[in-house]
Design a protein around this nucleic acid. Structure first.
Length: 852
RNA sequence: GCCGAAGUGGCGGAAUUGGCAGACGCGCAUGGUUCAGGUCCAUGUACUCGCAAGGGUGUGGGGGUUCGAGUCCCUUCUUCGGCACCA
């Protein structure tokens, strides 16, 4: 309606009945109700406890990602836990035996930073934060089984990190090597590849990660690359987005390695040497030219194009480049420049955009397939850490090689043709017939030319035959390369699990024996921001005895990446008090896999790939039976305010405490479910919380108003029906159906809560009829009772309060979820629109169930 | 560049299978209740023409299939997320 004519408008205002209900009604006061129930729940420590494996209920393990104890819950946590809590409560009510645990990812850098800033020991700071956050969780009313709470920074937990580490060491899955590692100058420690995002630290998005040469401990996750990739196919309860991200991260690529000999320059006749120039030309095969002892192995996915190779390209850091540069300082300088460009590109994050530069080394490599000698170049776009750090360059059939060749005037040789080209030009393919504009021609469905005995083969077939040929001849083989690298877990920091290793002059690297575990993290450590492991400054920690020879040994002073802690924590929840083993294998066999895991998508390729790896290792150790830890994964969206993720730096943080103080925990958590579907980003609007709070108030008053009638209702065999009670029951059963169906998979809790709102709107609209006695007490009792049950997963405080008010004695959490009756939910008549030529012509009413 | 998700009122979002687009909530408007209000209640609220009855237009844009399209097909634009000289 238009609103600009208010004066003339006569409001229908059927003199609003002085609604007796509104006069002296009790008000909904969450500030009074919620603490009272919180107190009562606290007096029943086993309220949300899972039953043992002997339970006759089907098991259901619902898990939310454990938080880092920063000291403050934020709205992202509240949302995450509200989703999990609704599910846990629903599953209990559906008759499942539910494990719903919580713990603390308690090691990590912030504790050390806080220690420096406030002069508080990391342990104390962390434990205080845990206590504070636990209080917040209890205030929110989350249904955790706290009996199996874990805190990863306590020795009872981290000793098992050490135990696992030693098991992996024994099997060669943990090893030490010197290599280039990512160094965050802000964290003063090494980072895993997964913790580097566009060349920046995952915790410091403005800090460029440096490369350093360090000796570090690695876990051989690459041993499981293939299985990690394959088993993604089994995880159909995971979001496709996460599976794709992991697939990309593992980055499998099939191809071949081919080893090129490097020509011995001394064997080249003088007349040829005189004609050599800038390394742009391929030199023909010559019997009298000998190989040196140097070799270059290249990785290629297109061995079928090897006859088209016109140069070999090395990464600036390739070991052979160092040898070449040692004898040629001018080359050394140019290579340094190339390396500099590559580093810079990595740091700025657009390595794909830098201009290609290269330099000719003056050396030639011999193509083992035809004896041709290819100039060896160094190029800034070749990465040492992918493949072999060396490639064969085929300008006619690779975009990058083409670009490079064009810039430096290298030869271009066509060795594959589109199949269709050959259909029309059946005979001579010797010189090919690709038009210049078609180059680089990279299509896979093609045929070989100019490739000696491999001519006319299809390229797929050629790839197999050529790799097989290389293997027979001993200069290559088919191989698979992964982008995934081994997981570097050494951290030069204090607040983490000590790596349980010793260095003995006589016996070398020795594991700490199991009976000496845990290697305790010392408490009296001075923490500073200066580099180097803080533990190295504690002689009483460093100096140890070799368990093999009894002689002096030096203790490892690095600690483990905190992602080790979270890689297996959910197994420990099944038996957190076990002091003989990381967990009770029988309990794990009962509870695993986790039925539903809920957390943020930011862990898609950190925690979620590490923990899959860890599970597979534990399976191979014989500890567990399951191949995968998590059956279904749900990634909830972020909480946004004013268009940006809530963060202190942006100043748009909404504190859960403040929301709870103002509207109550029920309203805050129900709003976090109502404002958006859980997998999407949620735009926080405080007025919306007020709206949900109003709704809860309407529920409260409605139920209280009829609590007496509901309580006194007596079951009767036949209920007199009226149109009103029919309509109300229909709406009720439609609502039950909607929410039940949604819990089975779709999880659009926003529409579930909307459905309850609709139900309440329908009920309030019928109050005149109810007052007039058109709805029997039994019906009213059913409606009121089911309404409270429907609300229980979303607003537990209010539900418990009303449950008691309507005279129920039993535990609401274990009360059976209401069943819907299809017959009652069905509409008697439905309206069917009839359209002709796009115009609505009529709406006809037909009995429900009428066919088309 | 490649892969993925999403574009619907003033706002958050509904519309599991093609069937009256805008449920539910916020906001806003009017009225009532109230000493007061970050209270409660009622009614209205996509846009647009019209005093009204009533009409027209509408789900990022363009085309198509269909009696009927937010939904299916083709094409295109925009936003967000991931990967990226990966050989």
């Amino acid at each position: 309606m238009s609103v600009n004519n208010a004066p003339t408008k006569t409001a229908p205002a059927a003199p609003a009945e002085p609604s007796p209900a509104t006069l002296h009604e009790p008000r909904y006061t969450p500030a009074e109700i919620e603490p009272r129930w919180q107190q009562r729940w606290a007096e029943q420590p086993n309220l949300y406890g899972a039953e043992p494996a002997s339970s006759d209920k089907p098991k259901y393990y619902v898990l939310e990602m454990l938080p880092y104890p920063s000291g403050q819950l934020h709205m992202g946590h509240v949302r995450n836990y509200a989703i999990g809590d609704a599910l846990a409560r629903y599953m209990w009510m559906q008759g499942h035996n539910v494990l719903h645990p919580m713990g603390w990812d308690a090691f990590g850098l912030p504790a050390e930073n806080a220690a420096i800033k406030n002069n508080t020991p990391p342990r104390e700071w962390t434990l205080q934060n845990i206590a504070a956050m636990k209080r917040q969780m209890e205030r929110i009313g989350l249904s955790y089984d706290w009996r199996n709470e874990i805190t990863t920074c306590l020795p009872e937990y981290y000793r098992w990190n050490q135990w696992f580490f030693i098991r992996m060491f024994e099997r060669g899955l943990a090893y030490r090597k010197k290599s280039k590692v990512n160094w965050c100058p802000e964290c003063c420690t090494v980072l895993a590849n997964e913790q580097v995002i566009n060349g920046r630290c995952w915790r410091h998005e403005d800090t460029i990660v440096e490369q350093r040469d360090l000796e570090q401990w690695f876990l051989r996750i690459t041993d499981y690359a293939q299985e990690l990739l394959e088993d993604l196919g089994k995880l159909d309860g995971w979001p496709e987005k996460v599976r794709t991200m992991q697939r990309n991260w593992i980055g499998r690529s099939e191809g071949a390695e081919v080893t090129f000999d490097v020509e011995d320059a001394a064997s080249v006749p003088d007349d040829e040497l005189a004609t050599r120039h800038a390394g742009t030309a391929v030199l023909p095969a010559r019997e009298d030219v000998k190989s040196s002892d140097k070799k270059i192995t290249v990785f290629t996915t297109r061995i079928d194009t090897i006859f088209g190779a016109t140069s070999v390209q090395l990464a600036p850091e390739h070991p052979l480049v160092k040898e070449f540069a040692a004898a040629n300082s001018a080359l050394g300088d140019e290579v340094s420049a190339l390396l500099e460009q590559q580093k810079k590109a990595r740091e700025t994050g657009d390595i794909g955009a830098i201009e290609k530069h290269g330099v000719f080394t003056g050396h030639y490599a011999i193509n083992p397939f035809n004896g041709e000698r290819l100039p060896i170049w160094v190029a800034n776009y070749i990465l040492l850490d992918y493949g072999t750090g060396a490639i064969m360059s085929v300008p006619a059939h690779d975009e990058r090689d083409y670009e490079f060749a064009k810039k430096y005037g290298l030869e271009t040789r066509i060795v594959i043709l589109p199949r269709r080209t050959l259909d029309s030009t059946t005979g001579d393919r010797a010189n090919g017939s690709i038009d210049e504009p078609m180059i680089p021609y990279t299509a896979e469905d093609s045929l070989l030319i100019n490739s000696g005995e491999f001519n006319t083969l299809g390229n797929k077939e050629a790839q197999q035959k050529m790799a097989a040929f290389a293997e027979e001849e001993g200069f290559g083989k088919a191989t698979v390369t992964y982008r995934l690298k081994d997981w570097g877990i050494s951290r030069q920091r204090y607040w983490g699990t000590p790596i349980p290793m010793l260095y003995c002059e006589k016996d070398g690297i020795v594991a700490v024996p199991d009976d000496q575990l845990p290697v305790l993290l010392p408490e009296n450590v001075e923490i500073t921001q200066q580099g180097g492991s803080p533990l190295a400054r504690l002689p009483e920690f460093v100096n140890a005895t070799c368990p093999k020879c009894g002689g002096p040994a030096r203790r490892e002073t690095d600690t483990m990446d905190t992602f080790v802690d979270s890689s297996w924590y959910f197994y420990r929840y099944t038996s957190a008090k076990d002091d003989k083993a990381p967990f009770d294998t029988a309990a794990v066999a009962y509870w695993f896999p986790v039925n539903q895991y809920i957390g943020g998508v930011e862990h898609a390729i950190l925690h979620l790939i590490y923990s899959r790896f860890w599970s597979k290792v534990m399976r191979d150790l014989g500890l567990i039976k399951n191949d995968e830890p998590v059956e279904r994964l749900f990634t909830q969206g972020m909480v946004i305010k004013d268009g940006a993720k809530m963060s202190k730096s942006k100043g748009n943080v909404v504190s859960p405490d403040e929301m709870i103080a103002r509207y109550g925990a029920d309203a805050a958590r129900a709003y976090s479910l109502f404002a958006a579907p859980p997998d999407r980003d949620l735009d926080w609007q405080e007025d919306g919380v007020a709206g949900v709070s109003r709704f809860l108030g309407r529920v409260y008053r409605f139920v209280i108003r009829y609590a007496d009638r509901a309580r006194k209702a007596e079951a009767v065999s036949s209920v007199p029906t009226s149109a009103t009670s029919q309509a109300l029951l229909r709406k009720l059963h439609q609502t039950i159906r909607k929410i039940t169906v949604d819990f089975s998979g779709r999880w659009h809790f926003n529409t579930c809560i909307a459905a309850i709102m609709e139900l309440v709107n329908t009920l309030t609209a019928a109050e005149t009829a109810i007052a007039a006695g058109e709805v029997p007490d039994v019906v009213l009792a059913e409606i009121v009772r089911d309404l409270v049950l429907l609300l229980a997963p979303f607003a537990p405080y209010l539900s418990f309060e009303l449950w008691e008010k309507i005279g129920e004695q039993g535990d609401l959490l274990r009360a059976p979820w209401p069943k819907y009756d299809e017959a009652l939910a069905r509409e008697d008549e439905i309206e069917v629109p009839v359209q002709v030529n796009g115009k609505l012509r009529a709406v006809i009413r037909v009995a429900a169930g009428t066919d088309e």
